[in-house]
Design a protein around this nucleic acid. Structure first.
Lengths: 300, 300
DNA sequence: ATAATGTCTTTTATCGGGAAAAAACATTTT
DNA sequence: AAAATGTTTTTTCCCGATAAAAGACATTAT
């Protein structure tokens, strides 16, 4: 079967949302930029839209004929990339079952279980290895290092180093830097979320990532910026996994962010340092509570 | 052709060196541990050794019949892993020709040029991406970020953070920790090298890596330890590329290492900090001199 | 002449297959 | 019975092939 057409399906679904906004669609290159795909894919999309009677397509004219119905959309699960599918399966295994540290990972078994080729699994494992949770034995299998306390502490140590430095760099940015506008906008979003925290608490995770990424970017260091991928991945699954006191935790975190933002705006380095440390400390604490006590650091 | 038998060839060559030491060889499992390969490979090796009249092999008895000759060895280039071959080709391209930042990398072209399959090139690029020199455009090509001044500075920034912290952790290690013995041994090697620097200056690079890795290990943080891979890779190619004043540079570095070692032994954190900073500063300076002035940081 | 569309080519993503190497199991030797 | 050797199975590594997607070139419309 070679390659799935998830790029097309995902772009098609997003394309459907453009239909009810205007009575006719823009040019092919424009649609390409809008959807983030090549013109080849745009044309495949348009062809199907015509086929299903959504639009009338003749060269430059692309007239919308009707509103898209729910059944016009491709099912969500068909729009995921293979990498996403594999990652989800893998993380489920890692977090759910008794994934002991030291356990060996079998490419073939994983591939069969998920129903994909070994190449994709191999590529995933290589990409995933930078998160520090698995390790390769030279021309042999992969070894699971486990989502342990030690891991969480090591991750936090680096995160603190990087974020303190980034935050300091952020606070030192000139008045006219565009980041202050971004920060203001984020502050507003935080206030809004704080007000409606009772019902919208699950929206925090996304806001959290945007906020921290903005700060890390101020470091102007690719290694710091890239390291946030590790944190984001861990917290992404952590949020999905540990739902205990989610509302309370997020409520606290939002307030910490607001204090952190205020500190940044004050440009007082001592305040920034304190606010950052405080927030990271509670983030680390939350992370630690979701790790089973049994997971102890292993010896090499 | 599928998979090359470089593991066997490399282990065979190393196995030849065991022949002149003893009149008979140990058991198969023992040989496996010694050479770091499976028993399957050991048996392939023994089979060939018998075939070429090097040993007489009958079950447990493996008697050495003659000393290995130069032509018994497999050629060096056949013992490299594909990953090594690809990395070398790629780095040569990156450092040699006008590898402009922003240039796009073509998997197919690279594979054809090196004479390997695309899968291996893809896997290499994924592994290599963590060094921060290339970047992937979602379902499209890779982009070269370039070996620029900005890269060297960002690398150095992280290196300094990590090494200062590791060095401090090192100095705080208890008297009976085995690292002090390792450090003593390294100090001896440094003194020896210092005495014969005129002829052995090219042996410094290997000693340098061992020294810094020892220090980084004291951090007990996988992200810090793993980051040294980035530094090691960069300096490995840097040493091969920039031969200007190699002797002088290494002579200075050896002395800096000795001062650094003395500081660690004194356990005086201020001294450690100063010695570490001084050494890293000159290492960074050396690295910068090998980067062409034209390579300026690019805007996204 | 610029920017779109139409068509063709190249590259990426993924699979299945096969040889090398590892690992597991069975049998023999000390 | 512990550890080696002999044999078989499984897994990893890597290639070539193919569909999806991107990109390049040619043509047409404003």
């Amino acid at each position: 079967m070679s390659k799935s057409n998830n790029v097309y399906k995902d772009a098609y679904n997003r394309g459907l949302r453009l239909l009810d906004e205007t009575r006719s669609l823009p040019s092919e290159p424009e649609l390409g930029t809008l959807l983030g795909v090549s013109r080849t894919t745009v044309r495949t999309i348009l062809a199907r839209m015509e086929e299903t009677g959504l639009i009338d397509w003749n060269k430059r004219s692309k007239t919308v004929l009707r509103e898209p119905r729910p059944d016009d959309f491709f099912p969500e699960e068909e729009t995921d990339t293979l990498a996403e599918i594999i990652e989800r399966s893998f993380m489920l295994r890692l977090l759910a079952s008794g994934a002991e540290a030291g356990m060996q990972i079998n490419e073939l078994e994983l591939a069969r279980e998920i129903g994909v080729g070994t190449t994709s699994v191999r590529e995933f494992l290589i990409r995933f290895s930078r998160f520090g949770l698995i390790e390769k034995r030279r021309n042999s299998h992969w070894v699971l290092k486990g989502f342990t306390r030690a891991f969480a502490l090591e991750l936090t140590e680096i995160r603190e180093m990087f974020e303190l430095r980034s935050a300091a760099a952020f606070a030192a940015l000139p008045e006219d830097s565009p980041v202050w506008v971004d920060l203001d906008r984020l502050e507003d979003e935080h206030r809004l979320l704080a007000r409606e925290i009772a019902v919208r608490f699950n929206e925090f995770s996304e806001l959290d990532e945007r906020f921290h990424r903005l700060i890390h970017r101020a470091s102007h260091n690719r290694f710091i910026v890239d390291f946030y991928d590790v944190i984001a991945m861990i917290f992404h699954y952590h949020y999905q996994w540990n739902k205990a006191q989610e509302r309370e935790r997020n409520e606290v975190a939002v307030q910490e962010h607001l204090a952190y933002i205020a500190a940044l705006k004050s440009r007082d380095l001592a305040k920034v340092d304190a606010a950052c440390r405080k927030h990271l400390k509670s983030a680390c604490h939350t992370l630690l509570t979701s790790i089973p006590e049994g997971s102890q650091p292993q010896r090499a």
